[in-house]
Amino acid sequence: MGNVIGIGAAPKRKEDQRFLTGRGNYVSDIKRPGMAAGVFVRSPHGHAVLRLARYPAAGASRTPRVFR
């Protein structure tokens, strides 16, 4: 198989070196200045009618470093 090109070839992957050495840089590895984490708050009730939304959620605004 050594000299096969195209279909049937077993080429070395270009990305493996960084994955194997801990330098993959996945989304959760990325840090940016002022970066925030997102949280989705979903309804615990199926097919409920939304009558009133308080925003931000009670308590969230009192927590330090919570953005709107």
Partner: peptide, 19 residues
């Protein structure tokens, strides 16, 4: 140089996404 175990994973396709 990579560790022999790292080389083996590359050689034998022991990873896909790498996580």
């Amino acid at each position: 140089l990579m560790h022999p175990m790292q080389e083996a994973f590359r050689e034998h396709h022991g990873l896909q996404c790498g996580f």
